[in-house]
Design a protein around this nucleic acid. Structure first.
Lengths: 221, 221
DNA sequence: CTTGTTTGCCAACACATGTTGACATCCTCC
DNA sequence: GGAGGATGTCAACATGTGTTGGCAAACAAG
């Protein structure tokens, strides 16, 4: 797709946002072969995404201004627009989440699903600021909320399906599990309520694992 | 306290925000005697607070603009400033929360604390948009987060103290309870995740009551 | 080197925000 | 009726926002 702009007398034809075509949510991590040649601006793009993630995580959507993100990345705000079209595009590119949920369908792992999932969630939240960003944004931004719903639907629900006896109850049980896990993340990583931040990792696992296990596998009360 | 402003040649002395002195977080509900005479502007104040609560609840702190709130209340934006000084003051006045947590210290009620508290929380959240407002704001606003921490500390912690055996474990157990209850509110009333909104009230009580009961009274795992 | 494209910076626009001050009007009390 | 404070409206200010277009330098290909 091309744009034409008249500049003075001349008529300049150029691809306006040439790199938007190959835009993917990936970091500066090595891209899969075939997804486009490496670009000279990849470092800048990566810096923008990293800064965006951090700002979205700490400030939420509205207060994470493009100017502040650009400043963190040591570039001009207009670069953000060139590479990600607008703020929404930047957010979409910045928060691409794969929970990498473990498989718990094996008979032996099924009875340990609660513990496995809680431990996995703690690992995820403590090493991935994108999750905090998404939660912060999801609370105040419609697009963020929808993305969050999508993640629960596409990633959490299948896990519940693996261990839940009655297929009809899968959505309800996944929702219960989400409520407890997100509630912990909310109090511990977002609101930073003192007693929640003070909990030891082992404590959390010991308390929450039976809850998740029960939500997933216990007969409905 | 008085302010003086020179207007042209004259020198006008007047109380600038006379009504801020008697400002309290209360609604248009009848004030306690002695806290000041009823003011002619009480209706306006109430309309402002009501509109502010609704906007804060649906939009969060940043996107709930004073202009929008004023429009909802059918008054001029400057009135908001006169009565509540600034946006922070308005927020502080708008979200004054008393969870009215029931007493669960009786021996008979202690073993039912989980169910009682879950039911009470559902009542609260479904009839009080202030809670949604506070949660939304607490996630993106430092002042909101601190207020939320204060509520948990001053209102939720004492309840845990009533039923928890070991005083030393009270903060941890209160934090666990908060994580589950706030997590439910988050998924159901803020993010509005479909499976969470679809849960029946009785279902929620049946699933969550044992969790809360365990967090409060079970021996530590 | 020359030509066209990519990358980056600069200045600006249009708009929305919180906030302020001046002025008119209403009500109350003397 | 008149004085003074309370209430409300209007217009504006300063600032910050997302966003755009133009232009210069770095680069790649012929």
């Amino acid at each position: 797709m091309c744009w034409q702009t008249s500049v003075g007398e001349r008529l300049v034809t150029y691809t306006r946002w040439p790199t938007l075509v190959g835009m993917n949510g990936s970091d500066s991590a090595p891209r899969v072969p075939g997804s486009g040649a490496p670009r000279r601006s990849d470092a800048t793009r990566g810096a923008i995404l990293a800064a965006a993630r951090e700002r979205f995580a700490t400030d939420g959507y509205e207060r994470a201004t493009i100017r502040a993100i650009a400043k963190d990345a040591n570039i001009d705000p207009s670069m953000v627009m060139r590479y990600y079209r607008n703020k929404e595009g930047l957010f979409a590119a910045a928060v691409a989440i794969d929970l990498r949920l473990p498989d718990v369908s094996g008979a032996d792992r099924r009875q340990d699903a609660g513990r496995i999932l809680v431990e996995h969630f703690l690992d995820m939240w403590e090493n991935n600021e994108v999750l905090t960003a998404l939660l912060r944004v999801g609370v105040t931004n419609q697009a963020g909320a929808e993305r969050m719903q999508g993640i629960l639907r596409d990633q959490l629900l299948p896990v519940a399906r693996q261990v839940c006896p009655d297929p009809e109850q899968v959505p309800a049980r996944a929702a219960l599990m989400a409520s407890q896990l997100l509630g912990l993340a909310l109090t511990r990583y977002v609101l930073r309520v003192p007693p929640a931040t003070g909990l030891e990792r082992a404590e959390i696992v010991a308390w929450l694992a039976p809850t998740i296990q029960r939500y997933l596998t216990a007969p409905s009360p």
